[in-house]
């Protein structure tokens, strides 16, 4: 509440925004503010200048481009939650975004903010690695595309250079025969997940043909579970629980003052399987329909 005064600017273009970031070491990008401003209010972040990118019109909203969903970085969680296209082509995203914070956080918070903040327990970055999204990153002069899986480098750190902006997120639409699953354990409604799991799956016959699983809260950044994914192919959804230990090679939970690592690891096994089974069953339902 007792904050140190700082400056504020609304750049007219990504270029101008990046110039501010280059000029001022203490400048920070302000999007929805739902991660940054709590830190500022608590005195944990003391920026000299906030560069508000919300007025950059291109960064708002989402649309379908061929087989992919293109989401502007300033698109709020609430827009994702209520958008019919998201529900249709990326139902995993639509379901998981409902678990983010609370109504007010979703009304202001943005997908780009969530991705760039890189909290390892956040729902959306995990879902985006499962959906194999790509992020477009702009420094005003050059735009590059980074696979979602490579973006976060560790706890609250990313491949974003200090003068770069995340501008858009491209999510390939999964085919109509894919199902999805999302599972989360939090200590309280609306809290960051202790562990969350997201999965999409495609079945052929009664067996899993393709499965992708992501986990949040079990490593310094969201992870995929390639070992488990590979082993699941050709199995029935009912036979998945015995594969639970196969998440272990891909997670690295650590003890913190609140939660022991072994509990996070346990939840990872339970929730990965639940999410995978939900995804596989939804795929079977689609095929049956």
């Amino acid at each position: 509440m007792y904050v140190r005064p700082f400056g504020y600017t609304r750049p007219a273009s990504p270029l101008e925004a990046c110039e501010h970031l280059r000029r001022d070491d203490g400048a920070k990008v302000l999007a929805g503010g739902q991660s940054l401003l709590p830190l500022v209010n608590l005195g944990l972040s003391t920026p000299s200048l906030l560069v508000d990118i919300q007025s950059l019109g291109d960064l708002h909203g989402l649309h379908l481009e061929g087989e992919q969903l293109v989401i502007g970085a300033s698109t709020t969680h609430r827009m994702l939650e209520r958008d019919a296209q998201v529900r249709r082509v990326a139902p995993l995203l639509a379901a998981s975004v409902r678990e983010v914070g609370n109504l007010r956080v979703r009304n202001r918070g943005t997908i780009g903010g969530s991705v760039a903040h890189a909290d390892p327990a956040a729902e959306l970055p995990m879902c985006l690695i499962v959906l194999e999204a790509r992020y477009l990153v702009d420094n005003g002069a050059r735009v590059r595309s980074v696979p979602a899986a490579d973006f976060a480098t560790g706890f609250l750190t990313t491949r974003l250079a200090p003068d770069e902006l995340l501008t858009r997120i491209e999510v390939p639409a999964a085919g109509p025969d894919w199902g999805w699953g999302f599972q989360e354990v939090a200590r309280r409604a609306g809290d960051f997940a202790l562990v969350a799991a997201a999965a999409i799956a495609r079945c052929e016959g009664t067996l899993v043909a393709d499965l992708r699983i992501g986990l949040a809260g079990v490593a310094p950044r969201p992870v995929r579970c390639p070992t488990l994914e590979a082993a699941a192919r050709g199995r029935s959804p009912e036979a998945l629980p015995e594969l639970a230990p196969l998440v272990d090679p891909d997670i690295a939970p650590s003890d913190d003052s609140f939660t022991p690592a072994h509990y996070r690891a346990h939840l990872a096994r339970v929730l990965a399987i639940r999410a995978a089974q939900d995804a596989a069953r939804r795929s079977l339902d689609v095929r049956a329909a």
């Binding site: 509440m1 504020y8 302000l30 401003l37 709590p38 209010n41 508000d52 109504l103 007010r104 956080v105």
Partner: peptide
């Protein structure tokens, strides 16, 4: 709380509830 958790500061902006502690007046 200043953290966006408690909701005591909630107001509507254009009909949408927000944490007024996590929005700058300038925004």
């Amino acid at each position: 709380c200043g953290e966006g958790v408690c909701g005591a500061c909630a107001v509507l902006i254009d009909g949408q509830a927000v944490n007024s502690c996590l929005v700058l007046a300038a925004q």
